[in-house]
């Protein structure tokens, strides 16, 4: 029974992976699913309303207790004004802080003067739906809502890769 179960499951995984490969390589059809999370004021927010009028979006999963996340957000904050001027990018930061530290998020963000769109995912429903394993984890979404870059962990200088991609995505716009 157990062996059969394992066999079927493995075939499913292979099937699933193949199915992914079957997709047209030129159009990555991965988009943002609709998951019910919270906005900073506590009201319900559906993640399919993440949008930016045809311009690119950065979605960054983070937590107040995650050192590399904070490093990344400080760097994004430093660059945000410049990037907005050049590419109209909008940055959403999704905190996976649970009820232990969720109330910390608003003072934490404001105290640093960050101007990102802040979302709360206290039970990690959105994180699971996006297949994220650890934070920080960053997605870049193009103007049509397709995910064009996934990036896990953060080390200094990674933002250059984001910036180059944002420029590429907005080349033909305006």
């Amino acid at each position: 029974m157990k062996k059969l179960f394992l066999f079927i499951s493995l075939s499913l995984i292979i099937l699933a992976v193949n199915a992914q490969v079957d997709q047209d390589p030129n159009t990555n059809s991965k988009t943002i699913p609709s998951i019910e999370i919270k906005s900073l004021d506590g009201s319900v927010f559906y993640t399919d309303s993440i949008q930016n009028d045809g311009y690119p979006i950065i979605i960054d999963f983070w937590a107040t207790w995650c050192k590399p996340c904070i490093k990344e957000l400080i760097v994004l904050d430093e660059n945000y004004t410049d990037w907005q001027d050049e590419t109209n990018v909008k940055i959403y930061i999704v905190s996976i802080d649970d009820s232990r530290s969720m109330s910390r998020v608003a003072p934490f963000v404001s105290g640093r003067g960050w101007e990102f769109e802040v979302l709360l995912d206290p039970n990690q429903d959105f994180k699971r739906a996006m297949g994220v394993a650890d934070v920080p984890h960053t997605f870049i979404v193009d103007g049509n809502g397709n995910i064009v870059l996934e990036h896990t962990a953060y080390t200094e200088g990674d933002e250059d890769e984001y910036y180059e991609l944002l420029l590429e995505l907005t080349e033909d716009l305006d």
């Binding site: 608003a106 003072p107 404001s110 105290g111 003067g113």
Partner: peptide
């Protein structure tokens, strides 16, 4: 909590 740009408590 109190949160405005530049100050969070």
């Amino acid at each position: 909590s109190f949160a405005k740009s530049g100050l969070g408590i």
